[in-house]
Nucleic acid binder design. Structure first.
Lengths: 221, 221
DNA sequence: GAAACCATTTTGGGATACCAAACTGGTACT
DNA sequence: AGTACCAGTTTGGTATCCCAAAATGGTTTC
């Protein structure tokens, strides 16, 4: 793997894992020394992460994108449109057995599963479901949207009940899709996404003070 | 403007303007000398154009993305989902007077207008309509999709009647949106996009031989 | 004490040198 | 004639150096 890819991957993981907090400043020189790479691959990696929305140019220098509540709401609208289109395509497929693979993914989570795994599976559910549509653009759109939501979802305070409810909603969506009932699957998926958005934004808005205290920039617009 | 932006802009225009044909190979050194820039900004520009899908890594070196018929069909599905979501938001707006600006854009085209202008307005119609939704992600999605479709649409053989029909469809979409009739606007928009896609793919598939003879790579998948 | 000013440092943007891998063209051998 | 092989060239990937602009911090001035 080239240094460019290596730096990009590691830096993305640090940002998504909140090892570098939202709003923190980045300098090319720091990254350079941190990953023992020269500036050329570092700059290439920064350019790519910028298009992913994980970092942005903050006047002079680079900034890890703050968590933006208005943006989270817009992303929810966007992903709803795209995920609905994807599941409608999937419901129209003759062979929908691949849905079982996604269901198995859900089943692999139980009360002993670490929170980090729940988080990953929760994202992958939507991403893999979009992949089934066979449409590369719908798939990428969902994957990119989930990447942008990842940090906010990790910060969201979710109790055991909320996790279980989301899990059940995922199951219900799959059940409708397996039967090829596009309208029902769409209704359930839309409700799930809208519900997720509301809980997410509410949770972050409430914790905004605490998150800022931990050094995480959470902005309203 | 930085050299990076300058190279990116000029190279994008050359690709979209088919001055560099689909499928052609690019070398960093050629671009370097062509635009009198060093490899650093050239490399940055290439990385950005890659994320736009205008160029791709072809094993060794860079290749101007071929026109891919299967991809065009997938993009049509994608943009339909996104544009429909956008126009529904727009129809729900209290103030829809901005629609008149788009209508004025359409009106500026008549039989004396050069073909290039028709092409640009045809794209901008969809982009600006998406912008009205106020959702940055829907807007970007439409803009990026139209960028990817741009070269193919330019190559499409369209007679006077087809241009007029598309123009009338655009008008009809605006009329429904202005009244706030989301369902009717959606129906007309969907039909328009599906029709465009069919004409586009059919036209390119028929002309594939001729296009290849002109040095334009047109692939089926 | 605050504000204006200037020297120093830091930073991103750009230029260039170097390298290993891949490609090219020709040659020798069968 | 065809094929295997090899030297030379080209190319993207990387490291490093330079530069102008912006930030920084201390000092002077009012």
């Amino acid at each position: 793997m080239s240094q460019m890819q290596s730096v990009e991957k590691q830096l993305r993981e640090m940002i998504l894992g909140l090892e570098i907090g939202p709003g923190e400043r980045l300098t090319e020189r720091w990254i350079e020394s941190r990953f023992s790479a020269s500036r050329t691959p570092v700059r290439a990696a920064l350019l790519r992460l910028e298009t992913e929305g994980l970092i942005c140019r903050g006047g002079r220098g680079w900034t890890v994108s703050p968590i933006n509540l208005a943006e989270l709401e817009q992303i929810a609208v966007y992903r709803e449109a795209v995920e609905v289109a994807a599941i409608r395509l999937t419901c129209a497929l003759a062979d929908r057995t691949a849905i079982d693979v996604i269901e198995a993914m859900l089943e692999s989570c139980d009360t002993n599963t670490p929170r980090e795994e729940w988080h990953r599976v929760g994202m992958d559910f939507h991403i893999e479901l979009a992949r089934l549509s066979g449409n590369e653009f719908l798939f990428r759109a969902v994957r990119d949207a989930m990447t942008r939501l990842s940090r906010a979802r990790w910060l969201e305070v979710r109790d055991e009940a909320a996790l279980g409810r989301a899990w059940a909603e995922h199951r219900a969506i799959l059940d409708a899709a397996r039967l090829g009932d596009a309208d029902e699957a769409t209704r359930r998926l839309s409700a799930h996404i809208v519900g997720s958005r509301d809980r997410l934004v509410t949770s972050l808005a409430n914790d905004r003070r605490g998150l800022r205290a931990r050094g995480f920039a959470v902005v309203a617009a």
